[in-house]
Design a protein around this nucleic acid. Structure first.
Length: 232
DNA sequence: GCGACAG
DNA sequence: ATCTTGTCGC
């Protein structure tokens, strides 16, 4: 199995990564509504790490958005490309995630990834970064509020509250996907509106707290990581 | 300086 | 993210 090595021009330290975010941030597109929910294809991406060997496994799972059935799956195994620094998560995994996405036959349609898009210290989280690099519509769905705050929200599926930055800007939404469970934190990545991102998330999380896309991708990347270990 | 901090 | 047993609930 081929391993994806870190590109030679990849940022080597924090200042270099910050400079890349500064440059790429100008290319984010926020004025498109994005594809309608429950139509076409939706692709979930996720990664699993083996910190011992500095290896990351990525999975991309394409679902039929109407039926939530699997259309295609792809995985890639690569070198961890950056240390974990909050706010610079994307630099760790993007080369391997891109490899998995590029090996798909189908058009990915809307991409759903773990983590944030605009809800980020510099408004350029993983979902925005992945969107700019691929040109695809991307949203970010995270399990934690990161550095942001949010108001009280109702207890039912579909209830939400704005996710707020220090300056009061709405950078995303805390969205309840099932009655009585902790909310998810949805933000726009690229070429999708916040309303659209939330509508997609709700549709994809019709049975469980997490979107079906991330549940499928999470399962697959863990399997890919185990296989990579076994295959040495 | 110290603590917090997506995955 | 990852390390991990039993346990409460539908």
């Amino acid at each position: 199995m081929m391993i994806i090595e870190t590109p030679p021009d990849w940022p080597a330290d924090e200042p270099a990564a910050l400079a890349v975010q500064d440059e790429l941030r100008t290319r984010v597109v926020l004025d498109e509504p994005g594809p309608p929910p429950a139509t076409g294809l939706v692709t979930g991406v996720d990664v699993a790490y083996d910190d011992e060997r500095d290896v990351v496994a990525a999975a991309a799972v394409v679902l039929d958005a109407a039926t939530l059935t699997v259309v295609e799956e792809a995985t890639a195994v690569g070198r961890v490309a950056f240390p974990y620094i909050p706010g610079l998560l994307a630099f760790r995994e993007i080369p391997t995630v891109l490899a998995a996405l590029e090996s798909l036959t189908a058009d990915p349609g809307l991409v759903v990834c773990d983590g944030y898009g605009r809800a980020h210290p510099r408004r350029f989280g993983l979902a925005a970064h992945l969107g700019v690099l691929t040109g695809l519509p991307v949203i970010g769905v995270a399990k934690n509020p990161f550095v942001f705050s949010y108001g009280e929200l109702g207890p039912h599926r579909g209830d939400f509250a704005p996710l707020l930055a220090d300056d009061g800007e709405e950078v995303g939404r805390a969205l309840r996907t099932q009655d009585g469970v902790k909310p998810l934190f949805v933000s726009v990545g690229h070429r999708v509106s916040l309303e659209g991102a939330c509508a997609h998330t709700l549709h994809l999380a019709s049975r469980y707290r997490l979107p079906e896309t991330t549940r499928r991708a999470d399962r697959l990347c863990r399997i890919a990581l185990e296989q990579a270990k076994a295959g040495t």
